[in-house]
């Protein structure tokens, strides 16, 4: 299933619209997450991320833009870890873009920050 179709299907089932998407200037898939990445949202979004990951070409990049995420629970952190592992298995580079300070603090407290590739946008 094409990426756009996957996202449309997901967002139809989640009117709050947790996920947006775009392509970076390098052609990377960028998923824009927003809202609260707590237990329910993390559980709901996991299959979508897995499907998107399988659409990414090997040696490509999947960018999760976290600028709009206001809150993350341990389930949310677990989700990012799971996606990271799945991405590495597929030789896809997972990039966390514009991670808010509060999420950074949680990830750092858990000792997981160093495992992720973080990038800041130029804006």
């Amino acid at each position: 299933m094409a990426l756009d179709e996957l996202l449309r299907e997901y967002n139809e089932g989640h009117p709050a619209g947790l996920v947006g998407s775009r392509r970076s200037e390098c052609g990377d898939v960028v998923l824009e997450l927003s809202g609260e990445l707590e237990m329910k949202a993390a559980t709901d979004i996991a299959p979508l991320l897995s499907a998107v990951l399988h659409e990414c070409p090997a040696r490509g990049r999947l960018v999760l833009d976290l600028r709009g995420v206001g809150y993350i629970s341990s389930t949310g952190v677990g989700l990012l870890s799971t996606v990271m592992i799945a991405a590495e298995r597929r030789s896809v580079r997972l990039v966390l873009l514009d991670m808010p300070a509060r999420i950074r603090k949680i990830m750092d407290t858990l000792g997981l920050l160093s495992f992720f590739c973080l990038e800041e946008s130029d804006e």
Partner: peptide, 16 residues
């Protein structure tokens, strides 16, 4: 849980 995630991430990283 954090230790488990860390171990899995380390394993995946080592593997790659």
């Amino acid at each position: 849980e954090g230790e488990l995630w860390k171990a899995n991430l380390e394993l995946a990283e080592a593997n790659i």
